[in-house]
Simulated assay, not measured.
Amino acid sequence: MSRNSNLYEAVGGEETFRRLVDTFYAGVATDPPLRALYPEQDLEPAAERLRLFLIQYWGGPDTYQQERGHPRLRMRHAPFAIGVAQRDAWLRHMKAALDSLELPPTYHDTLWQYLSGAADALRNTPG
C-alpha cells in the first residue's frame, strides 16, 4: 500500500493514531533509559507531536505542518543521543503499541515498515 492511498482513513483515522501513540507513550513512561530522552516532565506534548506527525504523514489533516512547519525529523532529534539501544527500546514499545491495534496485516506491515525505517534513520550515535 502506498502512503497516497490514505492509510489514515483505512485504519480508522485519528482515533487509531491516538490509541497507537497513547499506548506507545505508556511504555516509554515506564522505561527509564528511553524516558531519559524526553526532557519534558509531561510526555503529553511529545505524544501530541508524534500523533499529529503520523496523522499528517498517513493522509490525515496537516495540523502538524500548520503548527510546527516542515517535520525535519533528523534535525529535531539531533540534540538527543540515539544509538542502537535507544532505537531498539523505541521500536519495542512501538511494536507493542502497533500490535495492540490488531490491524489487518497489510496495514500493520505498512506502518511497521515505515516506523522501523524511521527509527533506524534517526540513529545519530554508533552505540
Rank of each mutant, 00 (worst) to 15 (best):
V11R: 08
R51A: 02
R49Q: 13
A85D: 15
W90K: 07
P126F: 05
H108K: 09
S116H: 10
A47Y: 02
S2M: 07
N124S: 02
L122F: 09
A29K: 12
R87L: 09
R76E: 07
R68P: 06
L50W: 03
R92S: 12
A26L: 12
L52V: 03
D88S: 13
H77C: 06
G12A: 09
H108G: 04
R51F: 00
G83R: 09
S2T: 15
Q56I: 07
A26C: 06
R49L: 14
T110A: 15
S2F: 04
G127A: 14
R74L: 01
Q113I: 07
E102W: 01
Y107M: 12
L43G: 06
L50K: 05
P39L: 03
R92F: 12
F53D: 05
W112T: 00
R87Y: 07
N124C: 01
L91F: 11
A96W: 01
L73M: 13
K95E: 13
A118E: 09
L52R: 13
E9A: 14
P39T: 04
L54N: 00
P33D: 08
L37P: 04
L122W: 05
D88A: 12
T23K: 01
M94L: 13
P105M: 04
D62N: 10
G117Y: 08
P45E: 03
W90D: 02
E14F: 11
A85E: 15
D109E: 15
L54Q: 00
Y25L: 04
R74D: 02
Y64A: 06
R87H: 08
A81G: 08
E48Y: 01
D62Q: 12
V11C: 05
V11K: 09
E40F: 03
P71N: 09
L115W: 07
Y114H: 15
A96I: 10
A97E: 01
L73I: 06
F24P: 10
L101I: 10
H77R: 12
T16G: 08
D109F: 06
P33K: 10
G127T: 10
L73Y: 08
A47C: 08
L54C: 02
A46P: 04
A97W: 00
L52C: 05
A121T: 07
D99G: 02
A85W: 02
T16R: 13
E44L: 13
E102H: 14
H77M: 07
G127D: 15
L73W: 02
S116R: 10
T110M: 11
F24S: 01
A78T: 05
L73S: 03
Q56F: 04
L43V: 06
L54E: 00
Y8W: 13
Q66F: 04
L98E: 00
A29P: 06
I82E: 08
S100I: 00
R49I: 11
N6D: 15
W58F: 15
W112S: 02
R68D: 05
E15H: 11
F17M: 05
Y114N: 14
T125R: 15
E67W: 09
A29D: 15
A10Q: 15
D120Q: 13
T23C: 04
T30F: 00
F53N: 05
R87A: 09
R92Y: 09
